[in-house]
C-alpha cells in the first residue's frame, strides 16, 4: 500500500512518477514543474534506505529526495524512524554499534557510505543540530571556533565567530560575553549557539533533529525565522513532531509511519489534500 516498498536506485523522473498517488489533476502546470525542477535539483537523496538496529528494522526501503535550498520537514508519530533516517545522512548512526544502514545515500557525487569515504568528510559538508541543545562546556567563543580551528580555517577566526553568531541571530545577545561559559545561556540561546557552531563550518546541508522540542514558544519562533533566513544558503532537513511547525516553515513534507515513507509532497499538498488516508488522519490529528 505504500510507495516506499520499492527497490533499486531510481532516477529523479522515475521517482516523480512513482509518487504514491496519481498527481492531482487540478494542479496547474507551473506548480508541477516547480516541484519537478526542485526534485531534479535535489543533491541529497536516499534510495532504498533500510536501517536496522540488530534484527529490528527502524527504517524500511525509503526513497527520498531533499531539494536544494529548500526546507524539507519529516513528520510522523514518535518511533516512526524519522530521526534514525535523518541521522543516517551524516552518519551519526555509526556510533550505535548495532545499527546498520543499507541502500544508497548520496550527496552530490559522494556515496555517503562509500568504502573510501571518511565519515568526518561527510559531516564537514552535512551539519547537524540536535534535539537537545548540546553546547560544549566551554566559552561561547570556543564553542564556535573549535571546529574551524581543527579544520585549519584560513580566514580570521574572530570574524567567523561573529558572522556565524550573526547568521544564527545570536550576536546581539552575546557579543559582550563571548568568553563566558556557553552553559550560562538560556535553552533557546544554547540551541542557536549550536546552529551557529554548525554554520561556522559552512556546511551545504543542515540536518535538524527536532531542534525546538526542548524550547519555549518564543525561542521556537526565533529558530523558525532563522531557518527561513538560512534556506537561502543551505539545504535544510528538519525532523519535527510539531505539525504546525512543519506547515509554517517547510517547503516539502515527508510523512513516515512505522519506518515507511508514506507520502512525500510539497507542504501545501500534504496538509490540505494528501493522497493517502493515513497522512490525512495524521495531519488532522486523528492519530499519532
Amino acid at each position: 500500500m505504500s510507495s516506499a516498498e520499492k527497490t533499486h536506485t531510481v532516477s529523479e523522473e522515475e521517482f516523480m512518477n512513482k509518487r504514491p498517488a496519481t498527481p492531482e489533476p487540478q494542479k496547474n502546470s507551473s506548480e508541477a514543474s516547480d516541484k519537478e525542477s526542485d526534485m531534479k535539483n535535489a543533491h541529497l537523496k536516499g534510495d532504498n534506505v533500510t536501517i536496522s538496529y540488530g534484527s529490528e528494522q527502524a527504517v524500511k526501503n525509503v526513497d527520498i529526495r531533499f531539494p536544494t535550498n529548500k526546507i524539507t520537514a519529516v513528520i510522523g508519530p514518535s518511533g516512526c524512524g524519522k530521526s534514525t533516517l535523518l541521522r543516517a545522512f551524516n552518519r551519526m548512526n555509526d556510533f550505535i554499534p548495532s545499527a546498520s544502514v543499507e541502500g544508497s545515500l548520496i550527496y552530490r557525487d559522494m556515496d555517503l557510505y562509500g568504502k573510501d569515504i571518511d565519515p568526518v568528510e561527510v559531516r564537514l559538508r552535512i551539519g547537524m543540530v540536535f534535539q537537545k541543545p548540546n553546547p560544549f562546556p566551554k566559552t561561547i567563543y570556543k564553542n564556535i571556533a573549535w571546529a574551524p580551528q581543527i579544520n585549519g580555517y584560513k580566514g580570521d577566526i574572530d570574524e567567523l565567530v561573529e558572522s556565524s553568531l550573526r547568521s544564527a541571530a545570536l550576536w546581539d545577545e552575546v557579543s559582550d560575553r563571548l568568553h563566558d561559559s556557553a552553559l550560562g545561556l538560556s535553552g533557546g540561546q544554547q540551541q542557536r549557539l549550536c546552529i551557529a557552531r554548525a554554520l561556522a563550518m559552512k556546511p551545504e546541508v543542515l540536518l535538524m533533529d527536532e531542534p525546538c522540542s526542548a524550547l519555549d514558544p518564543v525561542s521556537t519562533s526565533h529558530i523558525e525565522d532563522l531557518m527561513l533566513e538560512l534556506k537561502k544558503q543551505y539545504t535544510i532537513v528538519i525532523v519535527t513532531h510539531n505539525m504546525q511547525q512543519a506547515a509554517r516553515v517547510s517547503d516539502y513534507t515527508a510523512f513516515m509511519d512505522s519506518g515507511v515513507l508514506i507520502e512525500f509532497d510539497d507542504t501545501g499538498t500534504i496538509f490540505t489534500k494528501p493522497s493517502v488516508q493515513r497522512t490525512e488522519d495524521y495531519v488532522s490529528g486523528r492519530f499519532g
Partner: peptide, 23 residues
C-alpha cells in the same frame, strides 16, 4: 550528546576524545 555535537562538526574520534570528552 556532547560527543555527537563534536562529530557533527566534522571532527575525528581522537579530536572529540581529547578536546571534548576529556575536558
Amino acid at each position: 550528546a556532547l560527543r555527537e555535537g563534536g562529530f557533527a562538526l566534522g571532527s575525528t574520534k581522537t579530536e572529540v576524545s581529547l578536546k571534548v570528552v576529556v575536558p
